[in-house]
């Protein structure tokens, strides 16, 4: 008898030896596409970082940036930038960890926990970016008010004519309005990119939840 025929005889009997996966087990396998969504969150966060760094690099040589950098009292701004980069790096690490965790999981329960974790990370990431924007704007204003000769002059004139309160009020209101517009645009940007990805992740989560019940 041929070797392969012997094998074939055994092969036909082997049907019962395999584990029988249930409908739910197979279904949760196809929900593994969650991992590709989380991978995209990771990639997009990196791309976004590259975009911002690119913009910063681009405006580095402009007149106003050069003037801003020439101010000696960068004791506020430099630490803020460094802390910002450290926190961003930590977020990239978290996004990457979420992706790794999700791609090696095969239980529905752990997958759900990881989806929740990813959602939280994205929320904190957006909050951090917005908070950082506000903090760095305030820091920039502080540096400008302490160093910019024109501004200092104007403030002194306003003080002399007794309109110092009005002078600062105009600045603060203008800054708040500008921040509101920028935050609005950023929120729209985040909602479009991360929001849509999270929506798909959420629908996977809901499917998994049904399986659990």
């Amino acid at each position: 008898m041929d070797e392969l025929d012997l094998l074939k005889k055994d092969w036909k009997k082997s049907d019962d030896k395999f584990p029988k996966l249930s409908y739910n087990q197979i279904y949760s396998m196809i929900l593994k596409r969650s991992s590709s969504i989380v991978k995209w969150i990771f990639i997009i966060s990196i791309l976004e970082f590259v975009l911002w760094t690119g913009i910063a690099f681009f405006i580095k040589d402009t007149e106003s940036m050069k003037r801003f950098e020439s101010y000696s009292n960068n004791s506020v701004y430099t630490p803020l930038v460094i802390i910002g980069y450290i926190i961003l790096a930590y977020f990239f690490y978290l996004f990457f960890r979420n992706y790794r965790n999700i791609s090696v999981t095969d239980s529905a329960k752990v997958l759900m926990e990881n989806i929740i974790k990813t959602r939280k990370t994205v929320r904190y990431y957006v909050l951090f970016n917005l908070g950082y924007l506000v903090a760095s704007t305030i820091a920039a204003l502080f540096v400008e008010f302490n160093n910019d000769d024109i501004l200092i002059n104007q403030a002194q004139q306003a003080a002399a004519s007794g309109e110092i309160f009005k002078f600062y009020a105009v600045f603060i209101i203008a800054t708040v309005l500008m921040l509101a517009v920028v935050i609005g645009v950023l929120l729209l940007f985040y909602w479009l990119i991360y929001g849509l990805l999270l929506k798909r992740l959420n629908s996977n989560y809901n499917e998994l939840k049904k399986l659990e019940i």
């Binding site: 395999f18 029988k20 996966l21 409908y23 197979i26």
Partner: peptide, 14 residues
């Protein structure tokens, strides 16, 4: 899909 795969899963196992 899941129903069909559940039925024919032995092909994949093999």
């Amino acid at each position: 899909f899941v129903e069909l795969l559940e039925k024919h899963q032995n092909i994949v196992h093999k």
